[in-house]
Write a protein that binds this DNA or RNA. Structure first.
Lengths: 205, 205, 205, 205
DNA sequence: AGGTAACCGAGACGGTACGTCACGTCTTCAC
DNA sequence: GTGAAGACGTGACGTACCGTCTCGGTTACCT
């Protein structure tokens, strides 16, 4: 979800011609606008102005705010993220949850803004779904490792386990708007690991 | 979250004078509009027209769409809802989850509309937070019963347990936009109950 | 078609409230814009800016450029114009034609602009038709006088005579874009008077 | 003003190469568009699409809509039209007026569309002036014949006579938007002939 | 026959204007 | 004098055409 790595150098002229340059400018503008003002002020006009591009150009290529977000989200999914390996299932899950908590409480709240956005644009919602689908698939590695280590029975439903571990984070921070609890990531990880070890995510289904 | 109980009869004249009548008309209009067209078309103009009240009146009393929603949500929290008693912790949790799944997949998706709304209006967000706070507090009864039955150790963190049980529902249906899985309510309930019985929600913290 | 009589005094606050004031401002702006830049630059945006009024206000009240023009034309028809009395039919017609020639060759060419406008907006076309209808009706006085003087037989078709007298002016100056010919008004008047005296506009039909 | 004469055969390759073929395609498209949708929808884009030619090509060769019209009008002037000979001045003029009335009331109103166009594009206006200049010059034959027949004195101003005869047609149908009057062509012809016979178009000037 | 200059297709872009919608404020007028 | 009705300012939306530009690929014509 991080994006704005300080672009390699040449901010004014990127390879690939005007079209590619325009796209990059708009991308950056979307992210910047989102970070500074949140989703509510993410208007096409503002993005266009910020990108130094004409309104109509944005409409032509991205159609609406949803299109802009989808583009950004898809680009965000193209990174090289992967789950850390701490040596134990609970540790891995806790590490994941720490990342989630960090993302959700970051300032400016870009992740929250994207979530909010997904409720207003079907296109953005689809993109977010794709993004999370990718992430959860990458995370299945965590479960595989645990199985290999013998911590979990084979046949464990990786996705269900991951959801059980991470869902409370989102629930508390996004739905319930609770103040961040530093113990929560660990607690949720422990709960899920414990249930998993007891076979809660096996077979049944 | 249910609302439209078949109003006692007299739709035209309620006790409390014009002010109260106006408020009720607007209330009804908000809910009706929300159900028919979703949040995106919940505009002050539409509500006012539907309620047969002048735009200005709505602005005066509710200020904006957020105010309208907050009012409706607070009213929705004034009902007599309570968790069912099935005789076992897992059963109680599963019953809760069934209700949640039903609410989230109902057509028209009024619950989803309210959640979406909460991302666009602080006032609605606060109201939703109040609403959920009330609900979770009522649900703590479920945990108390389990403790009394000896299913759970005393000192179990009721709120954490409830969140663990219900969060996966919201996560799958709202965040991940997954298709509803009829087995999920039961599975999530079982997982949480299992972890709770193992003491995952005790002491620690 | 004359308009910009130096408004009585108070340009800032007219009787009749904001609405009337707005209307007057827009009126003036339309005429000014038409005179300065012609019909092609008579855009809603420009008029609104010039009138110190917001775009949407203009759209609300006048719908489009045609509505603006119609309004102005109708206002222009409310003046106290009347044909001069020179003592003879030919003289009256020549005086009329002189006025026409003057209007069509005036600088800035506001009359031409209005004619041009009538080709682009049905509403303006209707207004122009109304305006000319009024004028021609007023001009029938000229024929009545000639009949009373015994210059013309009773039963002369006033409208046909007037058209025959004035049409060549418009044809030359508007359709054929000929350079103005100082003799034309008189010549056209003489031709029509001559034909009329010979009974060309009586009975027959 | 003629249009889709069944082109000689070879639709794929005309003499003169692609350039000439392109020009013909565009020509036809302009006329077709004008007839179907009138001037207001005569856009470069529509013409290009209709002609199966790229927008850019049209801009390169014709610059704008005015250029397209000028081209078409000039082509329309290259036909073999000539006034009919009915044997009398009044008859000739009436025949002319009948043609005018027919053209102005034809459906689709292509002539009116061209007139309207001339008010919006200087280039089209010049072309229309050329077109009418040609026509009126051809019509002077009518006057010559009348002189030869002894109906008119020599030295009659042919152009002025013709204008006097035809102008009322345009005035009624184009300016005043009156409903077509079947008697008008004859009446206008008679009036002009009468005045001419009385010497209204001689010498003076 | 081959090379070159003119022409064309393709598509993005900046730009102006359109007409609409909803918001929230402010003014007027009638009660 | 107050409050409902309605006009207004404001900002954004999404669209249509305009006219320009840059490519790259044909085509026509001329040597």
């Amino acid at each position: 979800m991080t994006e704005n790595a300080p672009r390699p150098a040449a901010p004014a002229r990127r390879p690939g011609g005007r079209t590619a340059r325009t796209r990059a400018q708009v991308h950056d503008a979307v992210v910047a606008q989102l970070m500074e003002h949140g989703y509510d002020e993410l208007t096409v006009d503002a993005v266009a102005a910020r990108a130094g591009v004409h309104r109509t150009t944005v409409y032509r290529r991205w159609r609406d705010v949803g299109g802009l977000l989808a583009d950004v989200l898809d680009a965000a999914g193209d990174d090289t993220w992967g789950p850390r390996d701490t040596g134990s299932l609970e540790g891995d899950l806790a590490a994941l949850n720490d990342e989630v908590q960090a993302a959700l409480t970051a300032e400016p709240p870009i992740t929250l803004a994207l979530i909010a956005a997904s409720f207003r644009s079907d296109e953005a919602a689809q993109a977010l779904k794709r993004f999370w689908g990718k992430r959860y698939t990458l995370c299945e590695e965590v479960v595989d490792r645990a199985v290999r280590r013998g911590e979990l029975p084979a046949g464990t439903d990786a996705r269900a386990l991951l959801v059980a571990a991470t869902a409370p984070m989102y629930h508390q921070l996004v739905f319930l708007r609770a103040v961040p609890d530093p113990g929560l990531p660990g607690q949720a990880a422990r709960t899920a690991a414990l249930a998993a070890a007891a076979g809660a995510f096996t077979a049944a289904r």
